[in-house]
Computed example of a mutant assay.
Amino acid sequence: MPQNSALLSFLDNDFYKFTMQQAVTRLFPVARARYHFINRGKHQFPDGFAAALRNAVDRMAELKLTKSERRFLENNCPYLDPVYLDFLEGYRYDPQEVSIDQKGGELHVGIEGNWHRAILWEVPVMSLICELYYQLTNASRISDEEVLLRTKQKIEAYAKLGVKVAEFGTRRRYSYDVHRLVMQSLKAYGEGAFVGSSNVHMAMLNQTKPIGTHAHEWFMFHAARYGFKMANSLGLENWVQVYRGDLGIALSDTYTTEVFFSQFDKMYSKLFDGVRHDSGDPLIFADRVIAHYQSMGIDPLSKTIIFSDALDYEKVARIAAHCENRISISFGIGTSLTNDVGPKAMNIVIKMTEAMPEQGNWIPVVKLSDEHGKYTGDEAAIRLAKLDLSIE
């Protein structure tokens, strides 16, 4: 990927951004949202980084959905309706929705716009930040052949474990080129284990399944619109309203797993195919999920947990052994696939920070994961959410 270039495909984004976008266009067409870059790893950015990122973001205005890309979505994602696909064909990134500033080694990035537009920025901006960081700090990586071999060894090890693995590594990948090599190797050597990618462009290139449902921001917005106590239940209800049983994996930790399962009643437990784990101890989570289904009279083996929190082989092996013959499982593996090529992976996120559900005032939004270190949002809003939800 040439230095300072923008992305090469409109679909070079995570699938859940498109599935959420369709739901937003249908249910919340006037809503607005703000997102901010969070530098968890306290990385120092080199001089000129903001200008390079600005150039890359500006060039994203050139991207558009091609006819072949639309056909891929039509053939593989029947729950994306023709009206939404027409909207996607007409969508163009507006770089004015993204603010970029740099003070010394500190980078500041903000996104603001109508939610149905702003929702697409997070993943590509993060991937551009990572790629430009390695370019402008003159990082060096292992060779293409070593990338292919390392990925081959990983997917073959997962296959021996007997687990299903999806690639979830767009946001913090080393580069577009490394991502393509990883996908090439997963496709070539992952028979029986590799099931798809969260990246729609990579799924299309490799003729595999695009994977994803919704993210934390879906429930964070619902808290701004309906209040913290109603966020999970109405988030699930609205998802069902749009997708009618498709895309049935629910994200469980926006306001802690305990709160989620107190609201994940028998109807939702039967209707959704399973849940996704993204924070906290995965073994404790698995036990909690299994006990929940059993309490509802539901066979846990008929349901699935998708684990997606900072996975590597050792963690996957431990989870697989713990869950064997107890509940169906699969794994979404990100950074350890797409950014294991030499330099240390970046620890960065972009999160929704405020929402304006209707015409009116901006409302702070928060995420209260099962790990306190993954809390995001305004401190006063976090305190209010914990009080409202009786979280210690």
Results as ranks from 00 to 15, higher is better:
Leu132Gln: 14
Val123Thr: 15
Ser99Asn: 11
Val109Ala: 05
Val123Tyr: 10
Tyr134Leu: 03
Glu122Ala: 13
Leu107Asp: 08
Arg92Ile: 05
Leu128Ala: 11
Glu122Trp: 06
Val123Ser: 15
Ile100Met: 06
Tyr84Asp: 08
Ser127Trp: 00
Phe87Gly: 07
Tyr134Cys: 01
Trp121Gln: 03
Tyr134Asn: 03
Asn114Asp: 13
Ile129Phe: 01
Arg117His: 13
Ile100Asp: 01
His108Phe: 15
Gly90Leu: 09
Arg117Thr: 14
Arg92Ser: 13
Val123Asp: 13
Leu88Tyr: 03
Val98Glu: 09
Trp121Pro: 00
Pro95Ile: 14
Glu106Asp: 13
Gly110Val: 05
Trp115Leu: 15
Ile129Ser: 06
Asp86His: 09
Leu128Cys: 05
Phe87Pro: 02
Leu128Arg: 09
Tyr84Pro: 12
Leu136Glu: 09
Glu97Thr: 11
Met126His: 10
Trp115Asn: 04
Tyr84Thr: 11
Gln102Arg: 02
Gly90Val: 04
Val98Asp: 04
Ile100Gln: 05
Gln102Ser: 00
Gly110Thr: 15
Leu107His: 12
Arg92Phe: 07
Ile119Tyr: 07
Ser127Phe: 02
Glu122Asn: 15
Leu132Pro: 01
Leu107Thr: 02
Ser99Leu: 08
Leu132Met: 06
Arg92Tyr: 10
Asn114Cys: 11
Asp94Glu: 14
Gln135Trp: 13
Leu128Met: 14
Ala118Tyr: 09
Ile119Lys: 01
His108Pro: 04
Met126Ser: 10
Leu88Ser: 08
Arg117Lys: 15
Gln96Leu: 09
Val98Ile: 07
Asp86Ala: 15
Ala118Met: 13
Trp121Asn: 07
Ser127Leu: 03
His116Val: 03
Pro124Leu: 07
Trp121Leu: 00
Glu112Gly: 01
His116Tyr: 14
Tyr134Ala: 00
Tyr84Lys: 08
Gln102Val: 02
Trp115Thr: 01
Leu107Ile: 10
Val123Gln: 13
Gln96Pro: 01
Val123His: 12
Val125Phe: 06
